[in-house]
Amino acid sequence: MFLFRRNGVARGASLRALRALYRSFNEQNGPDACARRLLREWLSSEQRAQFDANGFFEVTGSLTGRRYRIHQGTMSNVLELNEALEPKTGWCFLPERALAVGDVMLAQKIALETDEAAVLAIAKPFSPRLPFVQGAH
C-alpha cells in the first residue's frame, strides 16, 4: 500500500503526514461530521444561521407553540423559553441508544416539532438557572 524508506527522518515525516491526513479525513467523514451535516440539512435557513452564530437553534413545539432552544450536546441541552425568549425550564430527553451529537439534536428537533406531548411526558425537567456548560455531552 504505502512504501516508506528506512531513513528514520524521512519515515517519521511521512508517518506524521499520513496520520494528519487520516485525522483530517476522519474529521470530515467520521460519524460526528456526518451527523452534523445531516442536522444542518434538516435545519431551516433561520435555524442554521442561529446554530452557526450561537451553537444552538430554536424550534416551536407542535402542541403548545412554545419555543425551545436546543444547544449543542446530548443531555440537558434543551431549554424552554419564556415570552422574552429567556430560559424558563430545562428539559432532558435523548434517544435510548448512544448517537453522535448531531443525531441526538436532530432527534430532539423532530420530536418537539412533531410530538411535543410525548416528549414532555418522558422528559425530565431541570432548572435552567444552574450553570449551563455549552457543548457538554
Rank of each mutant, 00 (worst) to 15 (best):
L39I: 02
L63S: 10
D103F: 05
K88H: 15
G65P: 15
A84G: 02
H71E: 12
S62L: 10
A123N: 12
R67N: 02
W42G: 07
K88E: 14
P31C: 03
E86P: 00
V101C: 14
R69Y: 00
A53D: 06
N26W: 13
H71R: 09
A10F: 02
E58H: 03
C34M: 11
R48W: 06
Y22R: 11
Q72V: 05
L94H: 15
E58P: 01
R11T: 10
V9I: 14
S14T: 08
A84D: 14
E96V: 01
A98G: 06
F132T: 10
E46L: 11
Q28K: 13
Q28H: 12
T74I: 01
A17W: 00
S62M: 10
G90K: 01
D32F: 07
G73C: 01
E116I: 12
A53I: 03
R67S: 03
V104L: 01
F4T: 08
N29V: 09
L94V: 07
K109G: 06
N7Q: 10
R5F: 12
E83F: 07
A98H: 04
S24Q: 09
R37H: 13
F126H: 06
E58I: 15
L21F: 13
E86T: 09
K124V: 05
S45M: 05
D103A: 15
V104E: 03
N29W: 10
A123E: 09
I70F: 00
I122Q: 13
C34V: 14
E86Q: 15
L3P: 00
E41I: 06
A49R: 07
Y22H: 13
N7P: 03
S76I: 01
A100H: 05
N82D: 15
L15H: 03
Y22D: 11
I70C: 07
A98L: 07
L79Y: 08
L99A: 09
L18I: 11
R23W: 14
E86S: 05
D52H: 07
A111H: 11
L99Q: 14
